Amino acid sequence: MKFIRLATIAALSTTILAGGATAAFADEVREVTTEGQIQFVADEDGELVVIPPVTEPGVIIPPVVEPVTGPLSIVQAPTMNFGTQVISNQDQTYNMVAEMARLANPAENGPTEVPYVSFAQVQDVRGTNAGWDLQVSLSDFRSSTQNNILTGAEIELVDSTIQYEGTNSDNAPAAHAAGLTLLPNGAARPVMTAAEGKGAGASSVVWGDQASLTAQFEAEGFDPETDVVENSAIQLSIPGSTAKDATTYTSTLTWELTSTPGDDA
């Protein structure tokens, strides 16, 4: 019995040695590749939030309509107020009163709102890169008084810039040419256009210079209770020959986003 037990152990040991010698000459695998994957789909009902186009000062701006959902939507558009003016029989051009935005982190005893650039923002999360076109039209400036229409009034978008919130600047849309004029009851005018292959993500067409607005607001002697900050990038022109009553005239700006450039929405 002892002889059999020893023979078995010896045979097992020989097998181990043989296997080890074989492994030493086998092909070694020191590097392999595997695959990672993620798939994206358009969120038809996802809620969109405004991305302010200027980082300083830090502000919170609500959407023009709440809630705004994707995948292709206007999330912000400017309201244009040209202030209180003295009736004149001379041709006049008025700068827009700068819009105010709520500070995200106001200083103690400081202002809670600051003047901010005006902008229209489109967000495209369709994932198709099909392009889009943002247009605006203007109605008459009207009142309920005798001379109820400001005949000949027109808005000029003096200058603009594009702020594209994307890492690939080649995907940025194009802004309108400087000096774009909006005529009451005239055709809608494109203000920001993304050709096919462009415009994915968040894009803003911006009117105004933030540094200039801030300088006016922080100027010595400025009283926010009585004074206004002017944004000269948007102007209203009114002929002196137009009869004006001592009242408020209002108009409607209609912003339209078409799903592809040149097509109806």
Rank of each mutant, 00 (worst) to 15 (best):
D133M: 09
D133T: 09
D133R: 05
D133I: 02
L134P: 05
Q135W: 00
Q135H: 03
Q135C: 05
V136A: 03
V136E: 00
V136I: 11
S137A: 11
L138D: 01
L138M: 15
L138N: 01
F141W: 10
F141R: 08
R142K: 12
R142E: 11
R142I: 10
S143L: 09
S143D: 08
S143T: 13
S144Y: 11
T145K: 14
Q146M: 08
N148S: 15
I149F: 07
L150D: 02
L150F: 06
T151C: 00
G152D: 06
A153K: 04
A153H: 05
E154S: 15
E154H: 12
I155D: 00
E156D: 06
E156V: 12
V158Y: 05
D159I: 04
D159P: 02
S160C: 10
I162T: 08
I162R: 03
Q163D: 13
Q163A: 15
Q163S: 14
Q163C: 04
E165G: 03
G166L: 07
G166N: 07
T167G: 14
T167E: 15
N168P: 04
S169E: 13
S169L: 12
D170K: 09
D170C: 00
N171L: 15
A172S: 12
A172V: 01
A172W: 00
P173M: 07
P173K: 07
P173F: 08
P173W: 07
A175R: 15
A175Q: 11
A175I: 04
H176N: 14
A177Q: 12
A177S: 13
A177R: 08
A177D: 11
A177H: 05
A178M: 05
A178L: 02
A178I: 02
A178W: 02
A178V: 04
G179H: 09
G179P: 04
G179E: 04
L180E: 11
L180D: 06
T181C: 04
L182I: 12
P184N: 09
G186Q: 09
G186C: 10
G186M: 08
A187D: 15
A187T: 14
A188Q: 01
A188G: 06
A188P: 01
P190R: 12
V191I: 15
V191D: 01
V191C: 03
M192R: 03
M192L: 14
M192A: 03
T193W: 01
T193M: 10
T193H: 01
A194I: 08
A195I: 04
A195T: 11
A195K: 06
A195G: 11
